[in-house]
Design a protein around this nucleic acid. Structure first.
Lengths: 218, 218
DNA sequence: CCTCGCGGTTAATACTCTTTAACCATGCGG
DNA sequence: CCGCATGGTTAAAGAGTATTAACCGCGAGG
């Protein structure tokens, strides 16, 4: 019941899609089984139960987000000040359109890298994004706290990256701003009528503006 | 089965909270009944069924949003150009902190009013916001299309209001930008660690920046 | 007075769901 | 060839669900 066989991976992927589309309680184990070509109780050869499937989805998603974010901040420093060295683009494919900086502000700090990273993740794994933000309450106690820990740590990485840009914000305000930016970036499952590249460009620009320029009055 | 008695209103409100918290399929009619002090099948004296309750919640929410938005645009004009006359603040209480404009841009156009209106709605009715964006798929055919019509019309009002600010965006891009802004404004149920006034201010500023300033490169 | 509709009750029906049990094919190490 | 783990099957159990049925107290209008 431990290793990750291709079948298990397939089950997790299709289950994530179903959970995202109809909600955890709106999907039966029969539905999941049928979606992968087997039927109902065969899933119990791979997972302990329905809740375990959701748990593995969420553990995997939150872990990938957190580790990706931490990889962007750990260039040797603690990430509490704006860094000017090149931030790696995170292995999620695509994304040749790096923002052409021109103002005095640093163009390649951690926040910029986080925006690009999260946008790529949301565009490539919309189902994981959806269930991560709305289904973590359907988990049992132990799995929920583990997922929640990673989610809070992920928010914390973002909040620290935002601080140098917006020193006037209190920690609580910065957290709220980060979560609002998540709402913006995670809106991609609800739209998807323009090309992926255009969506990526639009979302990164909007998130950048919302996070760094929102002190300007119109 | 038609008129809106206080009991019916109470049922709809508490059901909306439950649906927002645990999802439509995660709430039983017994749960809803218990939450209002009656038990289970008594709900059928007021509504045709569980799905009908969700339908009335969503119809009500989408109607209030659409009518509120339309009231802001209908000052006699069609709202396709930026208007400089005073836009009414929408009767949702609060909100004395009008943005102090200083740049050349118009400070009180329809978009600004829509941002304020939607922010107020999201802050005062978070449950309706949540179920409106994630539970409309649990509706039957006829109710779903009626709710969806209103939602699309609401998006359309926003998109038209955004056009004069961002003429370079294609209609599809403008729609995506509007939905991203909704994601940002609707993030309020996930945070709520700062005061309502501070949240209102933060969200309106971020949405304003995301929608109107996102063409600026950092 | 008395009927009658309104809003409630509990019991019962007819599912559907998760999970377990019992069984079976197949490929592989010895 | 044997044994057996792997991954699948169907049947069944047991809990939970929405919905309906049958019944009841009660306040108001004739």
């Amino acid at each position: 019941m431990r290793r990750v066989t291709p079948r298990r991976r397939q089950i997790l992927d299709t289950a994530a899609d179903l959970f995202a589309a109809r909600g955890f309680h709106g999907v039966s184990v029969g539905d999941i089984g049928a979606a992968v070509g087997i039927s109902g109780p065969a899933l119990y050869k791979h997972f302990a139960g329905k809740e375990d499937i959701l748990g593995q989805c969420l553990l995997h998603a939150s872990e990938r987000l957190l580790e990706g974010a931490r990889a962007l901040t750990e260039h040797g420093g603690d990430g509490d000040e704006v860094r000017h060295d090149r931030a790696g683009r995170a292995g999620h494919g695509g994304g040749t359109d790096a923002p052409a900086g021109h103002a005095g502000a640093p163009e390649d700090d951690v926040l910029e890298a986080l925006i690009a990273f999260h946008t790529d993740f949301a565009l490539s794994q919309p189902s994981l994004i959806v269930i991560q933000e709305r289904e973590w309450g359907s988990l049992g106690e132990q799995a929920r706290v583990r997922v929640r820990e990673r989610q809070l740590a992920y928010i914390d990485v973002w909040t620290r990256a935002l601080r140098p840009h917006r020193p006037e914000l209190s920690p609580a305000q910065a957290r709220a701003a980060v979560q609002a930016a998540f709402g913006l970036l995670n809106s991609t499952p609800h739209s998807a009528r323009i090309s992926r590249a255009a969506m990526r460009d639009l979302l990164t620009r909007m998130a950048r503006a919302a996070l760094t320029l929102s002190l300007i009055h119109i």
